[in-house]
């Protein structure tokens, strides 16, 4: 099962990072967002093509109030 920000998701294996972002109601080129999959950064340029494996851990990060 693909985990999205620590939670189980309905995403299927083979879904792209861009697809995961769409699942979060984000534009495919959303600004102010970074993505890591299994602890590795997925650059913006690869969002459309990077396919997620069945047990991928996807982190979608953005700016929060802090220090």
């Amino acid at each position: 099962m693909i985990r999205l920000n620590g939670e189980p998701s309905e995403l299927d294996a083979g879904e792209t990072v861009a697809g995961a972002l769409a699942h979060l109601q984000l534009a495919p080129d959303a600004q102010g967002v970074a993505v890591a999959v299994d602890g590795e950064i997925v650059p913006r340029s690869r969002w459309a093509t990077f396919a997620l494996v069945a047990d991928a851990r996807v982190e979608v990060l953005t700016a929060m109030q802090g220090g």
């Binding site: 920000n5 990060l61 220090g67």
Partner: peptide, 21 residues
């Protein structure tokens, strides 16, 4: 300064425009 944290998953009503996101 800002911190980098997980995007909240609860999207609520914020996403009426699917193209713009």
């Amino acid at each position: 300064t800002v911190a980098l944290r997980r995007l909240p998953l609860d999207v609520g009503d914020a996403a009426a425009d699917r193209d713009a996101g």
